[in-house]
């Protein structure tokens, strides 16, 4: 795990210094009253989701760099002045672009990074449930189907994850699949044995 410093991050640093000079320091005139502990907590929450612009993959909360610590005090001042965490994030996005957010905003192309894992998991589970049914069906008529067998007394039945996540979507997608797609899936599953 080498940590060779990344180059090419100088521009954000300059930007950062520029905006630091222009931040409002009217923190005292807080519209809302937050206790110091609450303010600490919220500051940390916002700082954890912002990237430290001059570091390698560290959040503003974690970084010990001067800029990150300045940013923390900006976050704190703005929260104390009554801005919502959302406002503060927007402010930094305005200065640095979406790059500053460690968790991308779920919009546009970014939706993919949130949806694809679910699609993969549910799709996989759907295929798996069908495959398990096929396998169980091949031997015995008495071997239960995937969703009907549960562990008595258990907090979560063993097939729960597959059943819950996979069953409905699988049934749902099955309806919307074309014949061709179904055949393709079947071929894929056959090659999986």
């Amino acid at each position: 795990m080498s940590l060779e410093g990344r180059k090419g991050r100088r521009a954000p640093l300059l930007l950062g210094l520029l905006f630091l000079a222009s931040t409002p320091h009217a923190a005292g005139a807080a519209a809302q009253e937050l206790s110091a502990a609450e303010l600490d907590q919220r500051t940390a929450e916002v700082a954890a989701e912002l990237r430290c612009p001059v570091c390698r993959n560290q959040s503003v909360l974690e970084s010990s760099s001067g800029l990150a610590r300045e940013m923390q005090s900006v976050i704190r001042d703005r929260l104390a002045a009554g801005e919502s965490p959302e406002d503060v994030r927007e402010y930094f996005v305005g200065r640095y672009g979406d790059w500053i957010l460690l968790k991308p905003e779920p919009k546009g192309i970014n939706l993919l990074v949130y949806l694809l894992p679910a699609v993969a998991l549910l799709g996989g589970a759907g295929l798996l449930v069908r495959q398990i049914r096929r396998w169980t069906g091949a031997t015995t008529a008495s071997g239960g189907t995937a969703e009907s067998v549960v562990i008595p007394g258990g907090p979560a039945p063993v097939e729960d994850a597959a059943g819950r996540d996979g069953d409905q979507p699988a049934a749902g997608t099955a309806g919307s699949l074309s014949k061709e797609e179904e055949d393709w899936i079947r071929r894929q599953m056959e090659s999986v044995h």
Binding site: A48, S59, G97, D98, W99, L101, L102, K103, I109, V113
Partner: peptide, 12 residues
């Protein structure tokens, strides 16, 4: 694809 820079970090 779009010459935009975004981050996917620890919170994600």
């Amino acid at each position: 694809l779009r010459s935009e820079r975004i981050s996917v970090g620890p919170p994600y």
